[in-house]
């Protein structure tokens, strides 16, 4: 029964991802100046930030769980969530930079959101470095959990509040029309919402596989000690 349930959500993820890729590349999109066909990046670039925030939120959730009840399971989940969050951040950065080259004219435009995302990545790279510094496992897990929660508390204002206080080149900011203005017939939304869900679910899937692998490795190591 458990396996069937596990199978279904993976099937849904695959179907939604296929829909995102096929629909995102083939469906009709509004014709807009400058953006032209690159508006399709909405289905790939924007969901990365949604996914990053949600998965890093999950990471904080597991860190809190770890502090309440120090089981190594929670630590592994927190770390793998953070890793996938970093992966999504890097992918979002790359997809955004390529897009910016062709719409804004350069890979790095000093846009507030771009800068904030870069700083956010630095915060999470520091988290990875912090984990490498401790020899003692339980101390490492606890301190990295504390930093993870602390970092997320500063990451949220960085991503959500600061860019809104300054003009941004992004569509929907600083006088640029947002997507609400473009898709009166909801053409973009038809693919955008499934895309967000699909990418978040894919992130969860990666976390699931990697965490299970790590837990199995840990079990094997524990067995090695006894043998």
């Amino acid at each position: 029964m458990k396996q069937i349930k596990g199978f279904y959500w993976k099937l849904i993820t695959v179907i939604l991802l296929l829909f995102t890729v096929i629909g995102g590349l083939l469906f009709e999109v509004p014709r807009l100046n400058i953006l032209n066909e690159t508006v399709r990046n909405l289905y790939f670039h924007v969901p990365m930030w949604f996914g990053m925030t949600v998965i890093l939120g999950a990471s904080v959730f597991y860190s809190v769980k770890y502090l309440q009840n120090p089981l190594s399971k929670y630590d592994i989940l927190a770390v793998e969530c953070a890793n996938v969050g970093i992966l999504f951040g890097i992918l979002g950065m790359i997809s955004g930079m390529v897009w910016a080259q062709f719409t804004w004219g350069s890979y790095w435009s000093g846009d507030p959101k771009q800068n904030a995302a870069a700083v956010g990545l630095l915060i999470y790279f520091a988290y990875s470095i912090l984990r490498g510094l401790f020899q003692d496992e339980s101390q490492r897990n606890r301190i990295s959990a504390i930093y993870n929660i602390f970092a997320y508390a500063t990451f949220i204002p960085l991503i959500f509040i600061l860019p809104r206080l300054t003009d941004s080149l992004h569509p929907g900011n600083g006088g640029n029309p947002g997507f609400n203005a473009y898709d009166l017939d909801s053409k973009l939304r038809l693919v955008f919402y499934p895309a967000v869900i699909a990418w978040i679910m894919l992130g969860g899937w990666i976390v699931n596989v990697r965490a299970r692998l790590r837990m199995a490795q840990q079990k094997l190591e524990d067995l090695d000690i006894y043998l």
């Binding site: 970092a151 204002p157 960085l158």
Partner: peptide
């Protein structure tokens, strides 16, 4: 946080600077 590690002065700037930027 940094004082728990042996290499705390480097760690202090690595952890602190990105967090203080906002």
């Amino acid at each position: 946080i940094a004082s728990k590690s042996t290499n705390s002065s480097t760690l202090m700037s690595v952890l602190g600077l990105p967090v203080i930027i906002p």
